[in-house]
């Protein structure tokens, strides 16, 4: 499989809430990196914020990976929130109806406030 051009950083800014910062591209090659990032999150975290501030590109396979990540989080009773999406990717979230299950916020601060 091609090397993913994705960088994922996991932070815990407040107790019980993790942030996964997504940089670069999210495509089918990002599968292992996304799974690894999710496994680095404390399984007892009640919410995970996906930060797309540095997202460069995401295709439909990448959206599929977000769906499977969402299912894993739902099984663990964790909320998924998103921040930093451009207007274009907000529209993609609406088109793919991800916005119905992932709450979208303008900024990391707004997402953390909603998750707290």
């Amino acid at each position: 499989m091609t090397q993913a051009q994705t960088t994922l950083t996991v932070r815990v800014p407040i107790t019980g809430v993790a942030i996964i910062e997504i940089s670069g591209e999210v495509t089918r090659d990002s599968d292992a990196a996304l799974k690894d990032a999710y496994e680095r999150v404390d399984p007892h975290a009640r919410a995970i914020v996906l930060s797309f501030e540095d997202l460069e590109y995401m295709n439909s396979s990448g959206i599929g990976l977000l769906v499977t990540l969402l299912v894993r989080a739902q099984r663990a009773r964790q909320r998924i929130l998103a921040c930093g999406l451009t207007e274009h990717y907000r529209e993609i979230f609406e088109l793919t109806r991800l916005d119905e299950v992932i709450s979208i916020h303008d900024s990391e601060a707004a997402a953390l406030a909603a998750a707290a």
């Binding site: 590109y57 451009t86 207007e87 274009h88 303008d106």
Partner: peptide, 9 residues
């Protein structure tokens, strides 16, 4: 927030 996605995106 960017409102002009590049063509690739």
């Amino acid at each position: 927030m960017s409102t002009q996605p590049d063509e690739r995106a």
